[in-house]
């Protein structure tokens, strides 16, 4: 099997004033992998996501996105919407759905960049525009079926239970036809059953849709089960990387999570 690098992050650095939130972080992801990014609270994981997806402009380092069939594209300084267009989308740690729109509409928004209709076709509703609109609805509905939310299609997003909202965010991100999906704590606030369903869903996305996945997660059971490789961050720097087995036994990781004293004891 030839491997293709999807995401290649080199020495990524982000400073806020005098505070260094990311310090020379390296990370690479191959096509078809499920990779986890873990670390204690405040380690810089979400900042890493924000830099990679263009919400922040990193102060140093380089980000390359591959897997689009062309040669890797440098993402530094590119706007988030262009990055979504290029094939990388994300979910948010503190769910950011379009609350006052329906579940289906939320997913239809994800189709925005893959469709063309402008003002003119909105007003005239020519056959081509109707066809596109119908396809958007069908595509969105199919995605809702995949995440088991089809029954809620016409419900306001804000009325969904917490776990369903997280799945809806995933469906919305998938609607952009990404090659790489970034999930920021997808299991936060879920009960064990929901987490198990999530585990299956993420695998399904990778296996059936061929979407590569990078996730931030605190639920270690999920991380160890699901991911093929793990990156560990602490204080803005990458401190370890390897298979779940490697990470479990890595003293640096244990130290980062449990602190110095426990190791000594």
């Amino acid at each position: 099997m030839t491997t293709e690098t999807i995401l290649d992050v080199k020495k990524l650095t982000m400073d806020f004033g005098g505070l260094r939130a990311l310090n020379h972080v390296d990370l690479t992801i191959q096509k078809g992998e499920i990779v986890a990014l873990i670390g204690p609270n405040g380690a810089g994981k979400t900042t890493f996501f924000n830099c990679v997806t263009g919400i922040y402009t990193p102060t140093g380092g380089e980000i390359f996105l591959g897997g689009t069939g062309k040669k890797p594209i440098r993402l530094n300084g590119i706007k988030p919407n262009r990055i979504a267009d290029l094939g990388m989308t994300r979910t948010f740690q503190n769910i950011r759905l379009f609350q006052n729109m329906t579940v289906l509409e939320n997913v239809m928004i994800g189709r925005h960049i893959r469709t063309q209709a402008g003002i003119f076709s909105a007003l005239t509703r020519l056959p081509s525009a109707r066809k596109e609109e119908k396809k958007t609805i069908d595509d969105a509905y199919n995605l809702l079926e995949k995440v088991d939310l089809a029954d809620w299609a016409n419900e306001f997003a804000k009325n969904l239970p917490y776990g369903d909202q997280r799945r809806l965010e995933i469906a919305r991100a998938m609607a952009t036809d990404p090659v790489l999906l970034l999930l920021d704590e997808p299991a936060a606030g879920m009960n064990p059953q929901e987490t198990q369903r999530l585990d299956a869903l993420i695998r399904k996305i990778r296996d059936e849709e061929g979407i590569t996945i990078l996730l931030i997660e605190h639920d270690m059971k999920l991380v160890m089960n699901l991911s093929e490789r793990i990156y560990v961050m602490d204080y803005g720097s990458g401190i370890a990387t390897g298979t779940p087995m490697d990470i479990k036994n890595n003293p640096a990781v244990i130290k980062a999570y449990l602190g110095e004293e426990v190791i000594d004891a």
Partner: peptide
């Protein structure tokens, strides 16, 4: 329409809509 939904998405959450490609 597609444009109308984009307007609403922007109203609901500017950052999320941008991250979704708007």
């Amino acid at each position: 329409s597609r444009i109308g939904r984009a307007l609403m998405a922007m109203r609901e959450d500017e950052i999320a809509s941008q991250a979704m490609g708007i």
